[in-house]
């Protein structure tokens, strides 16, 4: 019985300033982060924003992340559009190197009537060199 009373008296007799509400604002953490989505504005409408029109990584330029594999495109057709699993990845001259998650992808290059389709297998920490040959496709 004596102990709870002693504790209560300690609380009641504690100095007044310690009872004041205290607000701590701020705090800075140093580190790095990655954003999956690109710039977004509620006033901007893009009908091709969502998958499967743009490949994941389109907005980040297929930047490096841990546990990813590199794909090096070696093509003379710089104007060809590159598609990954049917979704636009960008233009060949801007995608000399892409970092992708490990997995199998359908890589397609299109330039007018000429196309090249092949399955690629990306492994983490490895570089895959791809040399697509665009062939004319007649309907």
């Amino acid at each position: 019985m004596k102990l709870p009373m002693a504790l209560l008296s300690l609380v009641l007799l504690a100095p007044w300033p310690a009872m004041q509400a205290r607000v701590r604002l701020g705090g800075v953490a140093v580190g790095a982060s990655y954003s999956y989505w690109g710039y977004y504005s509620p006033w901007y409408y893009d009908p091709f924003l969502f998958y499967p029109f743009y490949a994941p990584g389109y907005y980040t330029g297929f930047a490096y992340q841990p546990n990813m594999g590199a794909v090096k495109l070696q093509t003379v057709d710089k104007d060809a559009l590159v598609y990954l699993d049917g979704a636009l990845a960008g233009r060949a001259d801007k995608l000399k190197q892409m970092w992708l998650n490990p997995g199998a992808y359908e890589l397609e290059l299109r330039n007018g009537d000429r196309r090249s389709t092949q399955k690629i297998y990306v492994l983490s920490g490895k570089t895959l060199r791809v040399t697509p040959q665009l062939m004319e496709v007649r309907p």
């Binding site: 205290r22 701590r24 701020g26 705090g27 800075v28």
Partner: peptide, 20 residues
């Protein structure tokens, strides 16, 4: 290693009695 920077308002220093 970690580093923290922040801003504090309110409360009193129990030693000096000054507002912190």
């Amino acid at each position: 290693p970690t580093a923290t920077v922040g801003y504090e308002s309110g409360g009193y220093d129990p030693v000096t009695g000054q507002r912190r």
